[in-house]
């Protein structure tokens, strides 16, 4: 089985901290930050390297702040 590895990039200044992406991630990659962004929201951030690039987080993000990359290894 081909293994895949992914990575997400979050535009933290546009993130509104709704936490919808946290629940849809099958690999529990995303958590909310302790720090806040310019608008005062606790933004989403990747906390481990388990991302498979499934794009679930990106498709549910209401503000479209998540960009997803994926490679086959």
């Amino acid at each position: 089985m081909a293994k895949v590895q992914g990575a997400i990039v979050i535009n933290i200044e546009r993130c509104k901290g709704c936490e919808v992406c946290v629940g849809v991630c099958p690999e529990s990659v995303i958590a909310m930050s302790k720090a806040v962004n310019g608008k005062g929201y606790h933004y989403a951030e990747p906390i481990n390297e388990n991302c498979t690039g499934c794009t679930n987080c990106a498709v549910v993000c209401p503000d479209g702040v998540i960009t997803v990359y994926r490679v086959k290894i």
């Binding site: 590895q5 992914g6 990575a7 990039v9 546009r14 509104k16 901290g17 709704c18 936490e19 919808v20 929201y41 690039g53 794009t55 990106a58 498709v59 209401p62 503000d63 479209g64 702040v65 998540i66 960009t67 997803v68 990359y69 994926r70 490679v71």
Partner: peptide, 27 residues
């Protein structure tokens, strides 16, 4: 190494303007 243009699989569409959406979080 993963975050490179050729590995891109999902990105916010360019048809959005640069304005931040005025909706509440999670809407």
């Amino acid at each position: 190494e993963i975050i490179k243009e050729e590995n891109l699989v999902y990105k916010k569409t360019a048809l959005f303007t640069d304005k931040a959406l005025s909706y509440c979080p999670g809407c």
